[in-house]
Amino acid sequence: MLTKKDRQRFERLSLPHLDAAYNLALWMLRNPAEAEDTVQIAFMRAFEAFNSFSGNNIAAWLMTIVRNTAINTLNRNKRNSNLVSFDEIAHNTEKPHINNHDLRPDEVMSLITKQTVIAELIERLPLDHREVLYLRDIEGYSYKEISEIILLPKGTVMSRLSRARAQLQKWLLQQQRKEHFRGL
């Protein structure tokens, strides 16, 4: 039975991570209303299981629950086609080799100004890619922490991250070259 004291402790520990939870749900679901509902459900699930939480990283524990709840939402909505196609996409993603011959320094620098484009491209990534990218590059979790959150080996985290970034670089290069030819 959870008491008022448990509730107070839970709020103190969990609510500082509300923004992170909301952003993770938003990255996964791409829909603000669903993200909000998912976080609500996830926090209640976390509270129900609070007595069994014995670790010292409540943020990572919460992220695990938010992630699982988001996946349930996706499954329920039958909108998880990206998840199914992940392996196919991932294995077709070659890492583009960028060197001095492929890309001029000004081209490298112009990548920096492509934030809006990046946001759109990230939306095109499969769910498996988006979640590790969010956990690493936005929340700054280590590979080990991410592997604990998504319940997969560290090597899988590394390869998914690598594929996600390679895919983004590839798309960015394609986009950049299109713009280049348009400008000729």
């Binding site: 990548l111 920096i112 934030q115 990218l133 936005i138 970034r165 960015l172």
Partner: peptide
Amino acid sequence: LQNNIQNM
């Protein structure tokens, strides 16, 4: 690329 993502 990473800076771009982090600054989103």
